[in-house]
Design a protein around this nucleic acid. Structure first.
Lengths: 264, 264
DNA sequence: GCGTCGCGTTTGTCAGGACAAACGCTTGAC
DNA sequence: GTCAAGCGTTTGTCCTGACAAACGCGACGC
């Protein structure tokens, strides 16, 4: 490989080890931000293997010149991919694609969406919807006064006709109207989004315990069978608590998978 | 509140509702980046309640002028806090502190560090360290050939004299020297970091199952007792797999807590 | 042979400016 | 009274330019 200079420095972005440069371009007439267009194209290239793991991205200045962009814009695009864990920057070396299967971090997802994405055809049976006075635990989680009225929803989530999870949710009053037909047609999070609530973050606790007799009956397990438990408090973007969920999953049918990144 | 203009627009950063501005300053002689200094001060103010939830941060231009910084630098500082979920930006409104208890996202942490941080005084007993041929499952996780030699470590982790978890780790050969005295004095991740390995990300799966007879004996539970299980594949920053762990936790003694953020 | 120095490369940080888009409030018309 | 338009505010995006710090490699001296 004859190169003019001395050291073997980073070559431009090439497709899978060849010297053919990756086709990258941005559309300035599009309302999509330029940095976002570039980030999407790079991410697609990584996912499709056109940018091999370990491949160097070529320096930011050249990349910017090639695309007719400024360096900050290119940096912003790369930064979003670094934040996702797809790439690593190294001063004096360059930016390279991280080796191997790095999946996306777990999103704030609903079980319904998870199952649907896995092609499992989720179904929901509403067991109860009612309004009741908040217990101490529920009041603390929702940030309301103990004894004040809150909504309770109990649902059984199944996939392929087999029960997967028992879902108990408490909600502060007046946020969403909980109609049984809506709850059985889709997930709770979709209903909230449809009601104009912007979900922001959630605090989860995942543990395990033995099934009670009632849980066993609902989930078609024996009493004492191991269950995976999840408690979640969800906040919207103004910091309000919008939901407190206490869910139990059949251990044989469900596990939480997620990706952790070290914050640099 | 007499203001010159018409609408009640964002006031400057004030301490807890008063009109006393927050003391913010940067040290240009410090090697710490300016944006980082500012981010730290703002984060500390939020944590100490000097910046109340919902408080507006005042517009970026004024803030930059007050600190003698440029707007991009101020934006970079704020952006890190937005990424952490501490603040929310809204165009035409301003940046405000998110309400209430938003904790940090779960870091790629070791059980040892978790317990130590919780003041639990962890102790480790090494049950086995050996080298063995990789099974199909282990080989797939570590990315080595089936049957090639890999290290295996089995440890019992206790807190306050009571067993908490049974830890089985497989490691590719030649990465770290696994001496029993080191393993009992600290956690595996610390040993890796000390060996010059930069941890980058991990893929985890959390589930539940019933304890086997052997697990029951080790953890002082009965066979069939519910256990929390965690499998983890850890990568360093070059994408190498550095560890594959299969851990079981006593359900009564441990749960995973973490914070999820919605990616905008 | 081997370690050290220097140099070029590349990313990290920071400045200052400009225009566009979203938001909330006020004003005005009906 | 109610709804629409207008306007100022604030963040979002993008540009150009500059210097500093870390890294890897070759060249040099021993």
């Amino acid at each position: 490989m004859a190169m003019s200079g001395q050291a073997n420095y980073a070559r431009p972005v090439t497709a899978h080890g060849t010297d053919r440069p990756l086709p990258l371009s941005v559309d300035r007439t599009s309302p999509v931000p330029l940095y976002f267009q570039l980030a999407q194209q790079l991410e697609a290239a990584v996912e499709q293997g056109r940018l091999a793991p370990g491949a160097l991205l070529g320096n930011e200045i050249d990349l910017a010149a090639r695309l007719g962009l400024s360096r900050p814009t290119v940096r912003q695009a790369i930064q979003t991919l670094v934040d996702k864990g797809l790439m690593v920057r190294r001063r004096g070396v360059g930016t390279q694609v991280v080796h191997s299967q790095v999946r996306r971090p777990l999103e704030l997802s609903s079980l319904y969406d998870d199952l649907e994405a896995a092609g499992q055809r989720p179904a929901t049976t509403v067991l109860r919807t009612m309004t009741e006075p908040a217990t101490a635990e529920v009041a603390a989680a929702l940030g309301v006064a103990e004894g004040s009225e809150v909504h309770l929803v109990e649902r059984l989530r199944s996939a392929h006709g087999e029960p997967v999870a028992l879902l108990r949710n408490h909600l502060p009053p007046g946020l969403v109207s909980l109609r049984t037909e809506d709850l059985e047609a889709t997930g709770l999070y979709r209903l909230m989004r449809a009601a104009g609530i912007t979900l922001h973050s959630a605090r989860q606790s995942v543990g395990a315990r033995a099934a009670t007799a009632g849980e066993g009956r609902a989930l078609e397990e024996e009493a004492g069978a191991p269950l995976l438990t999840m408690e979640r408090v969800t906040y919207d973007d103004t910091g309000r608590v919008v939901e407190f969920g206490s869910h139990v999953y059949r251990a044989a049918r469900y596990a939480f998978e997620f990706q952790l990144l070290v914050r640099p």
